[in-house]
């Protein structure tokens, strides 16, 4: 029964799943989070690929989503609403902070446990993101590079359109611009991407 319900929840359209979450269905909430974690991570990754704490941010977005799911009046707008949470987090929190490397205090006393095991203090490696998938193909590498090279306002419309599948109207509201601006930014972003991958289009 549970497996059947699980399958059903996995294939259910998001608005229906959201309605169940709003009725305090914990199982539905669990599935809603699972179905969105990859896309949230993916969006954040392409908005700011150099951040070392993308997993934490993904969790933060999903927490905010779960916390205020009952406040979503129209479940049909779930995708748009979720992207508002993502971009709000991106703009409000990520960009306000000065991008500094995390510091490690050398004066902080080493605990007894540290003495017992390893005496030397290791500086955490922030360069690698364990969950980052290394894309194999050359073309994927090219696209990744091309997306990262895009100016931010172009990158965000590409991510919201091609990854999230939002309408121009929704993208305009999220980015606080007009539909015309979205149209032209998207066209220019696509042209720029096309320039990078032109040899693969033949």
């Amino acid at each position: 029964m549970e497996k059947k319900q699980k399958d059903q929840y996995y294939s259910m359209p998001f608005p229906d799943l959201v309605r169940l979450c709003q009725q305090d269905d914990q199982f539905a909430l669990d599935i809603l989070i699972k179905r969105n974690e990859k896309i949230v991570y993916n969006t954040l990754y392409h908005l700011d690929p150099n951040r070392p704490d993308l997993s934490d941010l993904t969790q933060e977005v999903l927490f905010r989503m779960a916390r205020s799911i009952k406040k979503l009046r129209n479940p049909d707008t779930f995708k748009y609403w979720l992207n508002q949470i993502i971009t709000n987090l991106f703009y409000d929190e990520l960009r306000r902070k000065t991008r500094r490397l995390p510091t490690v205090s050398i004066d902080e006393p080493i605990s007894e446990q540290d003495y017992a095991s390893v005496v030397t203090r290791e500086i955490p490696d922030i360069g690698q993101i364990p969950e980052e998938s290394i894309l194999g193909s050359e073309l994927d590498e090219k696209i990744k590079e091309a997306i990262q090279k895009l100016p931010e306002q172009f990158r965000i419309v590409i991510v919201l359109r091609e990854l999230q599948g939002l309408s121009y109207d929704e993208i305009a509201k999220i980015t606080k611009t007009s539909i015309g601006t979205v149209k032209s930014r998207l066209a220019r972003a696509r042209n720029k991407l096309q320039e990078h991958i032109r040899p693969y289009l033949q």
């Binding site: 993916n42 392409h46 997993s55 993904t58 999903l62 894309l135 990854l163 991407l193």
Partner: peptide, 28 residues
């Protein structure tokens, strides 16, 4: 060409993996 570019980019996005375990249970 533009349509193909769009499709290639969409496929690329689909290939990105997020393999962090237990996110859902931690959020709940």
């Amino acid at each position: 060409n533009l349509k193909l570019t769009s499709q290639i980019v969409q496929k690329y996005f689909d290939k990105i993996n997020f393999s962090e375990a237990n996110v859902s249970s931690r959020v709940i």
